[in-house]
Design a protein around this nucleic acid. Structure first.
Length: 603
RNA sequence: GCGCUCGUAGCUCAGUCGGAUAGAGCGUCGGACUUCGAAUCCGCAGGUCGCAGGUUCGAAUCCUGCCGGGCGCGCCA
């Protein structure tokens, strides 16, 4: 079975009160939630809104409802306060159902069927093959991979797709630099990852062009200079793009080689991050798509010809201003054209129910336009397209600017986090007297470094622009992935110490779980599935990170408090606590897994 | 100029389909290791929720105006 115990519980507890309100003439469904006031209980209802309809003071309504609520066996107390009704669960009684559920039911791990039968395609990463990935790509990759896992957990069939931009003027720049400055070199020869090798060429081109610009056209518009005949480098790059489009064999061979190197580097990075795709599209294969859609749209009146002959879409149709060209006056495509074609091709091939684009918020406008046009062309696509927009990542030193070389390279970042985690782990294990071999230290360091990075990238709502603090990310204190890993490992340690006594799957008496720390763990376990479901529905992995942290925090508080000692407990008290530890670890493990974080048995 | 978005504690961020005394982490300060791993834990202090109006039983949340930051507004990608 797969159930959300909390949802069931709330349903069961509130049904009689809903019926009571209904009988009294309240139409709307009452909104129950945790009290906003700390310590006020487990479930609350604001009764003020019914005062008018019932011609009764809120406090009186709350008092009447309290009597109804108390009839339920799992309600320990019902207090009317200032027009609010605050309910408290009987946790010891609830634990009797809750712990077996948390130990066995997939629903406790967040499995649900809210998207069952739905096919969802999610596009993310989408790098350009002219330079290695940086911190911004990390956020994109981790966000995309985690959303994909959340959607799967909600029962969806998920297709993860990467659209690699492997063509265009940017890759021609790298190609040109390679051809002119270092034709015989290879990544292997230089001992470099292919994407870094190609990135070096891109930088070399830019340097050469800057020198030319400084010499020939300083002070003038740089882009205009690049696009003019006056620039040798600009002209050569454009000539190479034309040669590529004409499928000139030598240019194509160089292009294939450069892209192969770069992609090999990308996929090594993906593998390290635990990211994988079901499908890889390349713009070299998609950039001509969409033209026939424009033809079709012209006939249907969705597009019209501007004065100079360009095919355009009237943006006022979708509440925006101006018009958007989908074919230039000379009949060639623009970026939007291929996006239209790619989207339709994917839809025809997969018949997705939903298509999610994980792309930075600087493209918010582009996607409004794209979705508007697609909806006008194919009404069945309306409501199926979603832009998962996310904010930039800033650094303690200031904003990331690729132009100024102020970027954090993804591979270097992972190396640095690994190194810091290695030193930390080595030190802690020396303190405790454990001598670990180097291989094991590095294995843990890698898991810890990545946990720090991933959790930090997930803990903020996608729309938030946030400041990434690398040192903070791998701290074992605070709201971090490492903290969650540590709680999991500590739970494992307790179970190892228990040995045979840890083989417990049931208990008769849960009254040992009345300590506040134990109740907080039960509460976190109970709330977890709803948070996972919300994370999937709202495409907000930050809810997953929060729910996992909340559980880790409650659990840490539990095993640190002497009253909850498991080893020294006996009989039913020990059995109940063992179940709690196992349940917490099981669900904690699920949270980590959903974030793509490795759960370590020991740290 | 227009559009979108943000402005909450010293710092980084939750909370925003209106609900009670606005939360968390870090940092500061103060505690807890003969007790399941002190990488963990417990506690104190800290906020006129950018400003000014409005809507109502009730506003960080909704509306209007203003101030300040970010991102966009191409027949670029």
């Amino acid at each position: 079975m797969m159930s959300d115990l909390y949802a069931k519980l709330v349903e069961g507890v509130t049904a009689p009160m809903t019926a009571w309100l209904h009988a009294a003439g309240v139409e709307e469904a009452p909104f129950w939630g945790p009290p906003t006031r700390a310590g006020a209980g487990d479930l609350a209802l604001a009764c003020h809104r019914y005062a008018r309809a019932l011609r009764k003071a809120p406090q009186m309504i709350a008092t009447d409802l309290a009597a109804v609520a108390l009839a339920h066996p799992l309600i320990a107390s019902a207090e009317p306060t200032a027009g609010f009704l605050n309910l408290r669960f009987d946790w010891a009684a609830l634990a009797e159902q809750l712990l077996p559920w948390a130990l066995q039911d997939p629903g406790a791990l967040g499995f649900n069927d809210s998207l069952a039968g739905q096919r969802v395609m999610i596009e993310y990463s989408s790098p350009n093959t002219n330079k290695p990935q940086h911190l911004g790509h990390c956020r994109n990759n981790i966000l995309g991979a985690t959303v994909a896992r959340l959607l799967k957990r909600a029962g969806a069939e998920v297709i993860q797709v990467n659209l690699i931009n492997d063509r265009g003027i940017h890759i021609c720049k790298s190609m040109l630099a390679q051809q002119r400055f270092s034709p015989e070199t290879t990544p292997e020869g230089e001992g470099k990852k292919g994407d870094h090798f190609v990135g070096d060429r891109y930088v070399a081109f830019d340097k050469a062009f800057e020198a030319e610009y400084a010499q020939k056209a300083a002070g003038q518009d740089k882009v205009a200079f690049f696009n003019s005949e006056a620039s040798d480098y600009g002209s050569a790059a454009r000539a190479m793009l034309r040669a590529w489009e004409a499928e000139e064999p030598k240019v194509r061979a160089l292009w294939r080689q450069m892209n192969a190197w770069c992609e090999a580097g990308f996929f090594a990075t993906y593998a390290r991050m635990g990211v994988h795709f079901d499908r890889v599209d390349r713009e070299s294969q998609t950039y001509l798509l969409g033209k026939d859609m424009v033809e079709e749209g012209l006939k249907a009146g969705v597009f019209y010809h501007a004065e100079n002959g360009a095919a355009v879409f009237d943006l006022t149709r979708i509440g925006l201003e101006g018009e958007k060209a989908v074919l230039r006056a000379d009949g060639t495509s623009v970026y939007t054209t291929q996006d239209l074609g790619t989207a339709l091709k994917r839809y025809e091939e997969t018949r997705f129910d939903k298509m999610i684009y994980v792309v930075g918020n600087e493209q918010d406008h582009h996607f409004r336009v794209l979705f508007g046009i697609l909806g006008a062309l194919r009404s069945e696509l309306e409501g199926k397209l979603y832009h998962l927009s996310y904010g930039m990542v800033e650094l303690p030193e200031g904003k990331m600017k690729s132009r100024e070389g102020k970027v954090v390279d993804a591979d270097n970042l992972m190396d640095e986090l690994h190194e810091a985690a290695y030193l930390q782990t080595k030190e802690k294990n020396l303190e405790s007297g454990a001598a670990l071999d180097e291989a094991e230290l590095h294995r843990r360091a890698e898991a810890i470094g990545l946990a720090g990075l991933k959790f930090y990238l997930l803990k903020f709502a996608p729309a938030t622009t946030f400041l990434f603090n690398p040192a903070e990310s791998i701290q074992p204190n605070g709201e971090t992935g490492v903290y969650c890993q540590y709680a999991y490992a500590r739970g494992g340690s307790i179970l190892r110490r228990l040995g045979e006594a840890g083989n417990v799957a049931s208990a008769e008496d849960f009254s040992a779980l009345v300590q506040p720390q134990a109740i907080e763990v039960l509460k976190a376990l109970l709330m977890f599935p709803g948070e996972i479901r919300a994370a999937a529905e709202q495409l907000k992995p930050s809810l997953l990170a929060q729910a996992t942290y909340s559980l880790a925090y409650a659990f840490a508080s539990f095993y640190n408090h002497n009253d909850n000692n498991v080893l020294r407990a006996e009989g039913q008290a020990q059995r109940a606590r063992v179940m709690l530890v196992k349940a917490a670890r099981r669900v904690l493990g699920a949270g980590l897994e959903l974030m793509g974080i490795e759960a370590l048995e020991e740290m």
